[in-house]
Design a protein around this nucleic acid. Structure first.
Lengths: 343, 343
DNA sequence: CGTTTCTTGTGGAACGTTTCCCGTTCACCA
DNA sequence: TGGTGAACGGGAAACGTTCCACAAGAAACG
């Protein structure tokens, strides 16, 4: 069916090895021969058989990426960053969604190990380190994306989550909020960091921490907004009620805003809301959402760059986390009195 | 490094072939031997080398999917539908975005051909049939998703676009609109179908077709809302101005709504807006958006099912397009006087 | 008892590359 | 004239799997 090296070699009266070397720019082949080979390959539209190559080299030129959710725009943006950076690198990016299910995630990882990808990127929903031990046993290098693990010395690319929490909370303080609530998500590293930052910012402003103001929505459904909706209803039932809510991601903030409006209150006049992620859709919302930008595209680029480096390196590289700095993007949902910035 | 068939065979004192057959449930192996083999494979955590298998069988167990844009939720939903349906099928789905660029799309397709995927799914941004001829030459079966081609007898899964246009337009008529505009996108098949449906619905209601009311935004930028924004500004400048706008997708509708509100008009009281795609975010918008649902998830499922059928079939199968019926989802952006349905 | 048939298993080759190592050829130098 | 070393090229083996054809043995049959 396909054209093989053998065909080219026969046509040109040289050996298969010569053709193979010519195509890969080996130094032991004369320019003239190279040119002849290249020409003939073009004519016949030769395509190397990657399976055969993978068999002998042990490298597949594939990079696997496991994300929690395809519909969550944050991860789509990261994926896009990775794939743009990988274009023309010769590597194929294979993305699988775990649908936020640790079991599916594990299957996806197993599949990637069986496929023998050269590198694995993972935004994990696991809380334990065990799966990563298996990846290490299989000898596949990996990079954690967005979510890290204490006690796992691994490569990591993501935003500085404590800074995210501090930035968001401080902004609410700056816009005049006195009673600031926090809606968190699944107990993974971003959440813990953000909670830490939230506490730090409160302390800095001499606001006492009140655990009644911290809600956690355990496992996210479709978009994660419904859980935040009910959490917000609980918060609004308190007396006095909070006048600012810091949500662990933008989808949760969408839910929070709906709950506030449905309760007959106004955003931001009665309650300010801030999210994280700075999703593309934020500007179209009922109340355009203030958010902490996590530099999704940059995360993707940096991860891709690191991945290529690690693949090229013949020595194992000592892991060193890459933390990106978050940025505040102010929109209507927190513009209480003073306009602080433009969206 | 990895455990191979040979290791297992040596351990058990049988031949490699026997192990291979046992694992694939061939009938010439006794139950007893099968059990022994399976047990040992488990113990050693054997993983077949897919590259070697691909080399000899000529099948990679990979399915490629080229979409125009990862950030456009419609396609994410389709991808998700496909990947859910493919889970546990033994096939790996590889998704690549063309960023709406025909050139990148072509590269992506070339890469898939080189990878020798078993099947190709394509939501193409091309207007010509040439690329598909190349895919056919390479002997790879393919299915068109969402966008079809006149003059190309190919498998297709998508919504009935003429029905989409008719449904949307009729809904605007039903809610009292007299002057109905249409904002279209790139000149691909969905657009043409929807325009056709728009015209048909106008004719049915004895509304004359006015070409001034049809705008087309040529090439979409990031989300496609900015082009629609300016198109809407042009429409609003007309006298009399339209009182209903049918947008070719939801993102365009987001842009249209922004333009209308920014002009100091109300949605839907002054101008109704309807989109297509029924994106997940529609309910959170400034004005929750009425939309024609394109059954993205179902498109994905059907495509996956068809793909598996086509791969299994040893004969080439005669292409037969699969058209899904669109459904109307009414929200605030068209609720002029009478509430027609719940969102 | 010889022949056929079924069951269970094996031998050898093939898939298309790459890699290691060795062989020419030729020019140049001492 | 012999030796040295580039420069260029090839031979053989290997990677891990599957497929085609056939073999050994037992059972069934005439």
């Amino acid at each position: 069916m396909g054209v093989t090296l053998k065909d080219i070699a026969r046509d040109l009266g040289v050996s298969v090895i010569t053709v193979s070397k010519a195509l890969r720019n080996h130094s032991d082949i004369s320019e003239q021969t190279k040119a002849r080979v290249l020409k003939r390959c073009q004519e016949l539209n030769y395509r190397p058989n990657l399976a055969a190559r993978a068999l002998v080299t042990g490298r597949t030129n594939m990079i696997g990426f496991v994300i929690p959710d395809l519909l969550h725009t944050f991860f789509s943006e990261v994926v896009r960053g990775v794939s743009v950076a990988l274009r023309n690198s010769g590597y194929t990016l294979v993305v699988t969604s775990s649908e936020q299910d640790p079991k599916i995630e594990r299957q996806a990882v197993e599949q990637f190990i069986t496929r023998r990808v050269d590198m694995l990127l993972i935004a994990s929903t696991h809380w334990t380190v065990e799966m990563f031990r298996r990846i290490e046993e299989a000898g596949i290098p990996y990079i954690l994306i967005d979510r890290s693990f204490v006690g796992l010395a691994a490569h990591f690319v993501g935003v500085n989550d404590e800074e995210v929490g501090a930035l968001a909370t401080q902004h609410l303080v700056d816009t005049g909020c006195k009673r600031i609530a926090h809606i968190g998500g699944p107990a993974l590293s971003p959440l813990l960091g953000r909670l830490e930052g939230y506490k730090r910012a409160l302390a800095k402003n001499n606001i006492p921490f009140d655990s009644d103001l911290v809600m956690s929505t355990d496992r996210a459904e479709e978009l994660g907004d419904a859980a935040a909706y009910s959490a917000t209803q609980v918060l609004l039932g308190q007396n006095p009620r909070p006048d600012g809510i810091f949500c662990y991601n933008d989808l949760a903030a969408y839910g929070a805003i709906s709950a506030i409006l449905d309760a007959g209150l106004r955003v931001p006049e009665d309650v300010s809301v801030i999210g994280c992620g700075n999703l593309l859709y934020n500007k179209f919302l009922r109340v355009p959402l203030t958010s902490v930008d996590q530099q999704s595209a940059v995360i993707g680029q940096r991860a891709a760059k690191l991945a290529l480096q690690l693949i090229e390196a013949d020595q194992p590289v000592v892991p060193k986390p890459i933390y990106l700095e978050p940025r505040l993007v102010v929109r209507a949902s927190t513009r209480k009195q003073k306009a602080l910035a433009r969206s």
